[in-house]
Design a protein around this nucleic acid. Structure first.
Lengths: 253, 253
DNA sequence: TGAGTGTCGGCTGTCAACAGTTTGCACAGT
DNA sequence: ACTGTGCAAACTGTTGACAGCCGACACTCA
């Protein structure tokens, strides 16, 4: 059985810039750059083995996705996560996902619920083997599935954008105590959706996310205290923070 | 009274790329490029009087905002608006704005309502002098104000992104019959918000937007029939559409 | 006459180089 | 010792140039 000749997907026919974007996003999301680090174009260009052009394209894109922060003439850096940011991100997620569910239920609820239950089952399996990174992935998949059920490309794109920002947090959650509750919480969410009660889901989702936010903030505080080198961004002095450029270590490769 | 010395807003200290982005977005939004047009980098670079770098930055950004479409190695073009896109954009708006209001009402409803009433008043004035473009602007401001009332930077950014896409449509709406209803509709929306009934607002918003969608689709059909050169994109053949490059006319300047 | 093929022009993706700005450090002055 | 100034290095923003790819046209052959 030879593989049939298939036309190449235009989206697949990627450019160098796109590849760099994906890899860089992965690095940022998995927290391989310490918050506050300025991502120098030349350094990255050397590490990726390409010129500054594609690197620039990737950095600018990630800035627009909200994963990085840019200050003109100063560079692009990994943002320090403030407590207010965590609250905001999760608030935005709650708003969109809550609205999405109402739309989704008007479509094909049975298929949605089936998929969600399957995801929960996988979560349970991942939990059994203590694969918390997989649990985090499935957590994301769960919520994304709900928004995708609206069959609205825009809504999906927007949600993906916020989810991208939370991804950094997901990887933190995987290390927080109380993570065992994640599976049961999602199980309950799925069952509430099965009943078709949007309002109930909104309440449950709110609690679920608030739970995560609380844990994250505590975790963030703990990390801050551990490092405890700078008082952390709050003061808004004119030009406070000095450059903190790292060799980016073992980033590329 | 001399103007006090104030630190320069970093966001203000813009780059060439940012300026080009803004101008280009303005051109796209106001429909100065015909749908299907491929925006050549060199042509734009000459018109704006800069090199291809900043142009590229601007184009890529607008692509990510959803205003333009990119096909690798082929170029970046103005998308043809399909009826399904209009429905999707307005669906996304309805979802986000509906969710946003619930959050906003938990904050400072009085201030919000006051602002909305002021906007409606301005709308009435603009209508009186038949300034339909101003009406469209105020229409946007009205809805944006609601989302901004959530005080969530993320939500505001996401909504601004979809609003950007609708902007193209706003300028169409300003030319459609029935535009007189816009003012009264917004007046009603504001009053519903004053009552604090979120569900009622969601219903009203749905009708309001559905109204716009219907008018837009009719308008789009009319335009299509008027041009009636190509059957419009539907076939999804492998490499169907031929290049349609325009001198971009009197765009820049 | 029509289908298929070779060639040419144009454009994007990528690279390398230049100029202005910012940052960090050293030195002079108090 | 401490503050303020001047200098040098480094980096971003911007420019110009090059190569591969895509589309169109013309030519050949059946």
């Amino acid at each position: 059985m030879t593989t049939p000749i298939r036309p190449i997907d235009p989206a697949q026919r990627s450019t160098l810039g796109a590849m760099v974007t994906d890899q860089l996003r992965d690095h940022v999301i998995h927290g391989r750059f310490r918050p506050g680090t300025i991502l120098g174009e030349v350094v990255l260009a050397e590490q990726f083995g390409v010129s500054r052009g594609p690197i620039r394209e990737a950095l600018l894109r990630l800035v627009q996705e909200g994963l990085l922060r840019r200050e003109p003439r100063r560079g692009i850096s990994v943002p320090r996560l403030a407590a207010s940011d965590i609250v905001d991100v999760y608030g935005a997620r709650e708003a969109i996902e809550g609205a999405a569910l109402a739309v989704a239920l008007a479509g094909d609820p049975a298929s949605l619920v089936a998929d969600l239950r399957a995801i929960v089952a996988e979560m349970r399996a991942a939990e059994a083997r203590s694969d918390w990174l997989a649990v985090a992935d499935l957590d994301m998949a769960f919520h994304r599935r709900i928004v995708e059920a609206t069959e609205s490309p825009r809504l999906a794109r927007l949600y993906a954008s916020v989810l991208g920002e939370t991804l950094t947090y997901f990887n933190m959650i995987a290390r927080t105590p109380g993570r065992e509750r994640l599976v049961t919480e999602h199980h309950e969410l799925a069952e509430i959706i099965a009943t078709g009660d949007v309002e109930a889901y909104r309440r449950a989702l709110g609690e679920h996310l608030a739970d995560s936010v609380e844990r994250l903030i505590r975790q963030a505080r703990a990390q801050e205290a551990a490092h405890s080198d700078d008082a952390g961004e709050g003061g808004s002095r004119r030009r406070p923070r000095r450059r903190e450029r790292r060799p980016a270590a073992e980033a590329a490769r």
